[in-house]
Design a protein around this nucleic acid. Sequence first.
DNA 1: AAAAGGATTTAGAATTGTTCTAAATCCTTG
DNA 2: CAAGGATTTAGAACAATTCTAAATCCTTTT
Lengths: 161, 161
Amino acid sequence: MSTPSENSATLAKRLIDSGLRPTAQREVVFKVILEKRDHPTADEIFARVKSQMPTISLATVYNCLETLVQCQLIRQVNLERAPTRYCPNLHQHAHFHDETTGQIHDIDLPIELMAQLHDVLPAGFNASSIELTFRGDAAGTAQPTVAADCAPTLTSPHGTN
Amino acid sequence: MSTPSENSATLAKRLIDSGLRPTAQREVVFKVILEKRDHPTADEIFARVKSQMPTISLATVYNCLETLVQCQLIRQVNLERAPTRYCPNLHQHAHFHDETTGQIHDIDLPIELMAQLHDVLPAGFNASSIELTFRGDAAGTAQPTVAADCAPTLTSPHGTN
DNA sequence: AAAAGGATTTAGAATTGTTCTAAATCCTTG
DNA sequence: CAAGGATTTAGAACAATTCTAAATCCTTTT
């Protein structure tokens, strides 16, 4: 499941459904984010995309990212005030920010924990989203973990493929 | 407990313990943050402080805030990429960001929940801090809640008064 | 096919929050 | 009181992002 061409098709469908066009720029930005699931910044994405499409501009990368976020194909991850990072993992998950390596790891959240989180809110507080970030050290997590933790998401979140 | 003069004394002690000087600027910045516990931004703090000390500069406000954070007298709160906010509540707590009013509410976190949060981490992940943010709507929370939720913190976190 | 018309891309300017710089000022102490 | 370091200050610099306006690209419509 989720071969490059399937992802591309999903992207096209999602865009068209929103009245937007599946352009080469949007495709390559999306592809680059799926390729290496390491929570890249806009600058990093720009660099990776430029190697395949040297004429693309940074503004376009920002535009595409915004579009992809709006179409719910990727998510923004903000840690402190560092540059925004982008993540194709759409599952409910937390982030672990390794302070020594700078790496970001996705952490799966059990559904029952989500329920408990909602329960700490006093009456009248209605949360539409929850953001959970851990900061610390990840022992023996030299490189792999990110790709391992981050499931290959994106295959018909609503069964519409 | 925690009258203005006590807070001022605590501030002075904490600064001196860190080899820093208790200056008028640091005192007024700290006082202003304690006065109205609404998670102000640096700009807002600057405005409030200027009414009492018209000659202070924005750079000094930033300097003082950094110092207070380092001395563990206040905390930074970052939501999305919006300007950093400052919070004198040092208790373990989450934030609820009301999307309609823009208000930020402090949410107490039971200790057992904190333990459960740590438990979701796979082996090897060692979190030194956890950040939890809710986003949504807070019904019937026109203004008060912030002050109500936010305990008057700061009275000898280590019994050293 | 040509033209119209809107969407998209682009380069560069503008914005914003924050940090840096260097000079002035302020303690504290010898 | 003089020296010396800490602090403050104004303004410049910076970095990430957004805005602007013109160019380009598609998709229709004719």
